[in-house]
Nucleic acid binder design. Sequence first.
DNA 1: GCTCTAGGTTAGTGATAACTTACCGTTAGC
DNA 2: GCTAACGGTAAGTTATCACTAACCTAGAGC
Lengths: 103, 103
Amino acid sequence: MMTALGDPTRREIFERLSARPSPVGELAASLPVSRPAVSQHLRVLRDVGLVRDEPAGTRRIYSVDHAGLAVLRTYLDQFWSRSLTAFAAHAQREETEDDANSD
Amino acid sequence: MMTALGDPTRREIFERLSARPSPVGELAASLPVSRPAVSQHLRVLRDVGLVRDEPAGTRRIYSVDHAGLAVLRTYLDQFWSRSLTAFAAHAQREETEDDANSD
DNA sequence: GCTCTAGGTTAGTGATAACTTACCGTTAGC
DNA sequence: GCTAACGGTAAGTTATCACTAACCTAGAGC
């Protein structure tokens, strides 16, 4: 999922979809890559649950999947809380060492 | 920054650092890649502001940079709010179209 | 001061993946 | 029913990048 957003083009696509759901052709027209390339990127994004697609006549409207975005946010928050905990533990240890030095 | 976390090995390193600040050797010992590879990954992470390093004798202790993590969270939240706005606009449009159909 | 440890750097290599071209399926409109 | 538009798929190519091996630098301890 993070790997999916690692690619700049894919991030750009995801960014545009977050602003407005769009069909494939519209995305490809405003991007420096071909339409098949966009299709492949969308497939990757869909496979990891970051976007959804909905048929609309002969077109498919892609939009960001809020559930996937929530997973991503939760994933990041884990880093956040864990690093804070580690930092607190580090501070605690520093303090203990200071106590040891003070005698 | 997102590109930096796109690589699985780099994510693994970042994950371990979020649990506990560590020197390079310790990271390399518990990873399936060589020490220079870890050094290169750490350089990338440091350049985008996701980790900090602090000299400790002959070693360097790496730890996650909370500022960088905050930037990342803000970046994700933009997607979140924007997609919600787009979704609301979509719903509004649907409703308007329903109104148009109802007469 | 010499050695040993820890780690950053460079050059070269191999594998991954993003991209294009060509092709095929599907739906809407005449 | 035929045609055109939209889009997904496959094969092939190229470029990026992660990795290793070799080398160099700096601090610590005897």
